[in-house]
Design a protein around this nucleic acid. Sequence first.
DNA 1: ACTTGTTAGATTGTCGACAATCTGATTGTC
DNA 2: GACAATCAGATTGTCGACAATCTAACAAGT
Lengths: 226, 226
Amino acid sequence: MAKLDFSPIADTTRRAEIVALLRRAILTGQLEPGQKLNELRISEQMRVSRAPLREAMRELVQEGILTSIPYAGTFVIEVTAKDIIDAYSLNQVLDEFAIERTWPLRDQRFFDELDRRHEAVKQATRAKDTTRQIETALQLHGLIYEWADNSVLLETWQRLTSRLQMYFALHQRARNEPVPAEDVHETYVALLKGKDMRAAQRHAREHIDLDFEELLAYARSLEKRI
Amino acid sequence: MAKLDFSPIADTTRRAEIVALLRRAILTGQLEPGQKLNELRISEQMRVSRAPLREAMRELVQEGILTSIPYAGTFVIEVTAKDIIDAYSLNQVLDEFAIERTWPLRDQRFFDELDRRHEAVKQATRAKDTTRQIETALQLHGLIYEWADNSVLLETWQRLTSRLQMYFALHQRARNEPVPAEDVHETYVALLKGKDMRAAQRHAREHIDLDFEELLAYARSLEKRI
DNA sequence: ACTTGTTAGATTGTCGACAATCTGATTGTC
DNA sequence: GACAATCAGATTGTCGACAATCTAACAAGT
């Protein structure tokens, strides 16, 4: 018997595809915060009935990027400065925990995957594909969560990621400057390969703080516009 | 204008009621882990069509207490020893964070609410209502999360709570011993009222460890039975 | 005996139509 | 003109029926 591992086959329900489509539209900012999702219109555009669409929307509500008011509608969540602060402060705590758990489990496969994802970020940066840059950066960041061998932690991170990605996308969309060309993840990757866990944890915290300042400033500007 | 705060009116959709019913059935162990939820049967029992039932089930899947396999069915999640370990280790980290954030925000209203919830636990204990005891104990524990003024943290805790409650319920159901009569939360409440934050954090960690040992032993026994 | 094809039954996924509810415009009243 | 009552249109919530898919039992071939 050959020892070939087959991966699970793709979800073949319309619902799953709708979830993916909607999530992408929200996280890239094509659907703006506060915007209402008209079921009839969307179902017609997707050539799908409202049943699977509604089920998909329930999933995204639980995922935290949509919000639903009975008989009124389902909306993309609004982004407040406080939301961003809250998400980031929790993210710091989780990062520390994830690094602690991943640390003893690092092996060659981990380092290889780390390099692979790092490379993906650099490529997206060179291509000036901001959406993909955000996506790959979060995937790079997510490796410590995938490696930490804690399914509940991973789920929590993935929920948080949805929001972070949305915040970043909004931020990128708002400022029309080009994306920073230098590689801010170089140190992060080096530290994860090194021997000083505390240093890695500290850097994760500081590095996040850096991006955070800029993002927060944007969030504040949003607040004032209302 | 009177400064009366009205609480949001109750959800009036069937879906919301179904979610509440199903969640309760799962968390109290009436629906056992691994059990399949037959849509037609349940919808007939509830005198409801399958549409709102299915939407409710999608929510609970995202909430993490159901799992769905396309064209096969939706099942109550299985509980493994590792799941419990994972949930608890994350809970420890979150507890520390929640206490840290809540600490400077404690006021008279906090202390009053703390006492109120503590009293509810004691009452459920006296009445030997194990289900309610678990529920109230988790509510007591959840106060630091509600008070921490971090919506993302609160959501995360609520998701985690669902599972913890399910684990505890399973545990309680398995052992037929009476529930401990002495009050294990006395010290916890006292420390939250005190001046030493570190001590409170330490106790939260240790206290949880205590219950955890017992719960874990049960989880291991589950593993072996398979 | 073991695999492979076939088929019937049950269950999930999807659809189109109807009922309940909300919104905002209109009318009528003071 | 301001305000309440009413109504029409649009949108969400729910239903019952049909289509797609899975499972398990059985038959047939090797």
